[in-house]
């Protein structure tokens, strides 16, 4: 095995570990939606730092690989894609942190907590999607990378419905309704970044820049 191969394997392993952490964060958010828990919410907020460190470390590794080993062709794409996925994962991690913040803030607001609980299945969808994506990255499965974004479309539709319900039912006061709908947006944004990762996987496997937004 070439030194370059070993280094790239190591780099991608770091990205996969980072992915695991991010998924763990979102799983915890799902738990929080179902069963509000002050200390778990604090832990999620706190763990965001770990994810940020992962990104810094991946960027450092990537720079060293470029400078010292001068990757080209597929090798170069592996490095670039590692950097890009790490950057999207970091954002997805940020959204977990803001979800946890939201829970901490609304623990004593039963109306909001109730709606949150109903929304937990959407968060579950996000978790599944992230798991599928990291699996596609691991196995460099371009077919899966093309398929997964349909999950984003479904998720988007669910969120739309939910937002309507929140507004129609006139739950709690206006401020709570507003907060909730911005929380749903964080789920939507996470899913958008997840779709970006699918694009990076396509680039990795095929060397083409694909844009899932332009599809329809």
């Amino acid at each position: 095995m070439l030194k370059l191969d070993r280094k790239l394997e190591k780099l991608e392993t770091s990205v996969r570990h980072m992915g695991k952490q991010v998924i763990e964060q979102h799983k915890n958010c799902e738990r929080l939606f179902e069963q509000p828990d002050r200390s778990l919410a604090r832990q999620v907020r706190h763990n965001d730092e770990i994810i940020n460190n992962y990104e810094t470390n991946i960027n450092e590794q990537a720079i060293a690989d470029i400078v010292l080993l001068r990757p080209i062709a597929t090798d170069l794409r592996r490095v670039i894609v590692a950097i890009k996925i790490a950057s999207d994962l970091e954002r997805i991690g940020d959204y977990a942190k803001s979800m946890a913040k939201f829970v901490s803030k609304n623990l004593d607001n039963p109306a909001t907590m109730k709606i949150l609980k109903e929304a937990s299945f959407i968060q579950h969808r996000l978790v599944i999607m992230l798991e599928d994506i990291m699996e596609a990255y691991k196995t460099k499965d371009v077919t899966k990378a093309y398929e997964i974004p349909t999950q984003d479309k479904e998720l988007e539709a669910l969120l739309q419905d939910f937002r309507k319900i929140v507004i129609k039912n006139n739950v709690a006061d206006l401020e709570d309704a507003f907060n909730l709908s911005s929380l749903y947006r964080t789920i939507g944004r996470s899913s958008d970044h997840a779709v970006n990762i699918c694009e990076h996987i396509v680039y990795l496997c095929k060397g083409i820049q694909y844009d899932f937004d332009k599809e329809d």
């Binding site: 070439l2 370059l4 990757p71 080209i72 062709a73 597929t74 090798d75």
Partner: peptide, 8 residues
């Protein structure tokens, strides 16, 4: 080509 340029 890829094998050659990447030293494999």
């Amino acid at each position: 080509t890829e094998e050659y340029i990447t030293g494999r």
